[in-house]
Amino acid sequence: MSTDTAAASSIRRDETVPIALLLAFAGGYLDAYTWIVHGVMANAQTANLVLLWVYGSIGDWTKALHFVPPILASAVGVVVATWLRRATRERASAISTLIEILLLVAIAVLHNRLPDLAGTLGISFVAAVQSAVFTRVEGVVYSSVTGNMRQAIEGVFAEVSGNGSLRPAGIFTTLCVTFGLGAAVGAFATKQIPNLALGIPVIALLIVLLRCEAPRDEASP
């Protein structure tokens, strides 16, 4: 067995590059969707926190409190994901992805009746679960729901300076592009097919689930 083959076979199925790219696409997509429909971020809770304080500082508490539900939903999602990792261990990625798929389908169904509750709380919860369960790509820490721009820049600098490998820089740069592509597709789909828009990230997550459950020789990059 070659060194590259051995290295590939040692990578956990939920840490492969294809899965990271699918999750980055879904992360960007859901951020665009929730921003356009609800005026909040599904993933970037720091942005929600900043906007909460900005509007609160000028006394516009109606707008400020609008950002509280997604922050709380995200916190609950992280707690649930942490418990899930402890309880199910290596099965956490597959189980959490299945939960995300079911919740997004339920959100899509409930959206017309309870738009704010289903969209703001549900999608922020889904995003938090994803970010807390999928934390590494090829053994390197990353975020499956943000652009990973800092890691991409550091990777490129390390490669240029001769102190790093080209592969990490390429992975993180591709993740940034994929996240942005997901946001662009999400914005377009939300405007053009609002009632079906959540179907696209569901498809991406279904592929993630299938890859997490695939035999080792099929899941390896």
Rank of each mutant, 00 (worst) to 15 (best):
E154Q: 03
S131G: 02
G170W: 12
T120C: 10
V105D: 15
I200T: 03
G119M: 13
I153K: 03
P194N: 11
G164E: 08
V145Y: 02
E100C: 09
S161H: 05
L104T: 15
I95D: 03
G155E: 13
R91F: 05
A108N: 08
V105M: 06
G180K: 11
Y142V: 11
I171V: 12
G186M: 07
I107K: 09
N148C: 08
R91Y: 10
Q151S: 10
V129L: 00
T190D: 00
A118W: 03
I99H: 13
D116L: 14
L175I: 10
R136C: 10
P194W: 04
E90Y: 05
A184E: 15
P201R: 11
L114W: 11
P201C: 12
V177E: 14
M149T: 07
A118S: 12
T174Y: 13
L121V: 02
F125L: 08
L98T: 01
G119I: 03
Q151A: 08
P201E: 01
D116N: 05
K191E: 10
A169P: 11
T146V: 03
A106L: 11
L121C: 15
S131D: 06
I123V: 07
A158F: 14
S161Y: 00
Q130F: 07
G155S: 03
V177I: 15
V137F: 06
E154I: 11
V141P: 14
A187Y: 09
Q192M: 13
S161D: 03
F134Y: 02
N112H: 06
G147H: 05
P168C: 10
V177N: 09
A183C: 12
R167A: 12
L198D: 04
L181G: 05
R136D: 03
T146L: 11
V133Y: 14
S131F: 01
E100I: 00
I203H: 15
L121Q: 04
T146P: 08
S124L: 04
L110W: 13
D116R: 02
S144Q: 08
A108G: 11
T97D: 05
C176P: 01
A152R: 09
A108T: 09
L104I: 00
A183G: 12
E138I: 04
L175G: 13
P201H: 06
I123L: 04
E159P: 00
S131Y: 05
P201L: 13
N148I: 12
A94P: 10
V140I: 10
I101A: 10
A106I: 07
F134M: 13
A184M: 12
S143Y: 12
A108Q: 05
I99K: 04
T88S: 04
A94G: 07
A152N: 15
E100V: 07
A152D: 00
A158I: 15
V141E: 03
P168I: 13
V105T: 03
H111P: 13
G122P: 09
K191V: 06
R167P: 03
L104Y: 02
A189N: 02
A152T: 13
L104D: 08
I123K: 14
L103W: 01
A152M: 03
F134K: 10
A94I: 13
